[in-house]
Design a binder for these strands. Structure first.
Length: 577
DNA sequence: GTAGGGTTAG
């Protein structure tokens, strides 16, 4: 009988009956265990391998380590992976490079950095850091644990770097927020004559999202692999994140197959761009073709409702998610619903939801509550939320700016002094307000009041002109308020030279009006910049996209995709403390 | 036949 012609269950029962089978049957069976996420079946096969004495087969045992490492069904499965490795050592096997790679990958999946480092020392001792599979596995271990430096070091030590080595280091850069370095590695890879594959391209598209490097992404994709569903989804996602909803829809429509993730990417894209109707329509289309939404899809749908202020719709989708799709709401879903109530000024309803939730609210929920309390003049609730936020997030400069703004605008100087003292004690630094603009794939960075900018005089003149013109259209600058507290510490707000104003002005000088301006910002936008850029989008009749630390703002004809409520923005961002 | 890819608002 040819064992490979058996189906999984038949083959498994042969093994349990103790029938002798050829060792070639184990690999496809174990492979199927990974797909079925079935630890118990893998254990049956494992037992059999040991029983008939095949356990000295290095390849087979290495594969078994891999199976246990990849099964997430049982908490102990991954511990089994290490036990098999130790058993291998105990029978006197000398681990091959592949074995070490697999074990490192198990460490990576379990975030077992300590154990990974021990194995790394063995690798150094054996002097095999140069080996391709060992180096690649080391690279992904360090990358997964957030240590980009060590990941790059591991990559550089590989003697014969293959496409997987390059892809690993490029995606490490993306995962660890150094897109610039990722793109440089990509350039180096091409110059060394290594051709990218669909895996590399997906990682590159993801880097381009962060960099707003639309044209790098568009050019990259000409290399091919468009038929790959993951590449297609990454492309849709890149266009969305770079603010081009039109190109994203085009890429989405042109895909030959779509997975749940593809649908969810496009739904989320419409939501971020403030297109409620398209979001809901696409959600319906998805259901009609029989793809079941998951919790992330519902985050997209609910956030679209929140941008549009549609509370009844949001609650209906919330119920649909629970009842029809049996998805248990998580914090993200509650946060969307709370956000809608806050935007509409229904703070009590929002607070009721917080009280009824099964979990402790996270910092974003308190952030929303504080901003809403401030704009809807419910100071006590605002202070309450602010103190809770401080407890949750005591190291973040933005939290303190929010708190100080709240207390200063209420004239509560005792609290202002207390917060200032806390900041000193906690060694909280000044907010790092930076903006970047990408023009013809070159990235220019700006910080507030930066004196040595390119085209400084020209840009300042243009900014002054724009402010004047915007004022004629009804713009009321909110910066430059002098506030004196009881300790006579002069606190001034200067929003005129916030980094995004400088970046947008520089963009206007250096791009044609037909091209949208893309700015990325390190903190969240302040109310003044938000309002100013709305006027600029009227004055220039162009599109301006600012991706700040909290959300995407696409300004067209005086409106912003974030819902234009304005109430959930920082009052001012800069304080001289 | 062991290593690398895509979705989460606020």
């Amino acid at each position: 009988m040819d064992p490979t012609s058996l189906d999984f269950q038949e083959a498994l029962s042969l093994i349990t009956e103790g029938t002798s089978v050829e060792s070639s049957i184990y690999v496809p069976l174990l492979q199927e265990c990974i797909e079925r996420n079935s630890v118990s079946e893998a254990q049956v096969i494992h037992g059999h391998i040991v029983k008939i004495g095949t356990h000295e087969d290095l390849f087979l045992m290495t594969f078994l380590v891999n199976v246990y490492a990849k099964c997430e069904a049982m908490e102990n499965a991954r511990k089994l992976a290490f036990r098999v490795f130790i058993e291998m050592l105990e029978v006197g096997a000398y681990p091959t490079n592949y074995t070490l790679g697999v074990v490192l990958n198990a460490c990576c999946l379990m975030y077992a950095i300590g154990l990974g480092k021990q194995i790394h020392s063995c690798i150094v001792k054996y002097d095999i850091e140069y080996d391709t599979s060992v180096g690649n596995a080391l690279g992904s271990l360090y990358s997964n644990c957030g240590n980009l430096n060590s990941a790059v070091k591991a990559f550089l030590k590989i003697r014969e770097k293959n496409v997987i080595s390059w892809t690993t280091v490029i995606s490490s850069c993306g995962d660890n927020r150094d897109s610039g370095m990722g793109l440089r590695f990509f350039g180096k890879m091409l110059s060394e004559g290594v051709g990218p594959n669909e895996f590399t391209l997906t990682s590159i598209l993801s880097l381009c999202c962060v960099m707003q490097a639309l044209s790098v992404g568009s050019q990259t994709i000409k290399t091919g692999f468009l038929s790959d569903v993951v590449v297609g989804t990454a492309l849709v996602n890149m266009y969305n994140k770079c603010g081009s909803i039109e190109r994203a829809s085009k890429a989405f429509v042109e895909m030959s197959t779509r997975t749940l993730i593809s649908w969810t990417s496009m739904i989320t894209g419409f939501a971020q761009h403030g297109c409620l109707q398209q979001t809901l329509q696409l959600f319906e289309d998805m259901r009609l073709v029989g793809v079941r939404p998951n919790k992330i899809t519902f985050v997209g749908v609910l956030s679209a409702c929140s941008h549009a202020g549609m509370v009844d719709e949001a609650l209906a989708y919330f119920e649909m998610m629970k009842n029809e799709h049996k998805i248990k709401p998580v914090m993200d879903h509650f946060a969307c619903v709370i956000d809608i109530f806050v935007r509409l000024g229904c703070l009590d309803e929002a607070f009721e939801i917080i009280k009824k939730m099964d979990f402790e609210p996270n910092e974003f929920i308190w952030y929303t509550m504080i901003a809403g309390s401030r704009s809807h003049k419910n100071l006590e609730l605002g202070f309450y939320a602010a103190e809770l936020l401080l407890k949750l997030n005591p190291k973040n400069s933005e939290t303190y700016v929010l708190l100080l703004n709240t207390y200063i605008s209420a004239g509560r100087w005792q609290d202002v002094s207390r917060v200032r003292k806390l900041m000193k004690d906690e060694k909280i630094g000044k907010l790092k307000d930076w903006s970047w603009i990408s023009i013809k794939d070159k990235v220019y960075s700006f910080k507030p009041d930066f004196q040595f900018r390119p085209q400084c005089e020209e840009a300042d003149q243009l900014l002054a002109d724009l402010i004047e013109k915007a004022k004629n259209h009804g713009y009321e600058p909110q910066g430059d308020l002098g506030v004196t507290d009881e300790q006579d510490e002069e606190t001034t707000f200067s929003t005129i030279h916030h980094s995004e104003k400088l970046a947008v002005t520089f963009g206007l000088l250096n791009t044609s009006n037909a091209v949208p301006i893309h700015v990325i910002k390190s903190t969240s936008m302040c109310q003044d910049c938000h309002s100013f850029i709305k006027f600029v989008s009227i004055l220039t009749a162009g599109e301006i996209i600012v991706r700040d630390s909290k959300r995407l703002h696409k300004f067209v004809s005086g409106c912003c995709s974030c819902g234009d409520f304005g109430s959930l923005l920082q009052l001012f961002l800069e304080l001289n403390w």
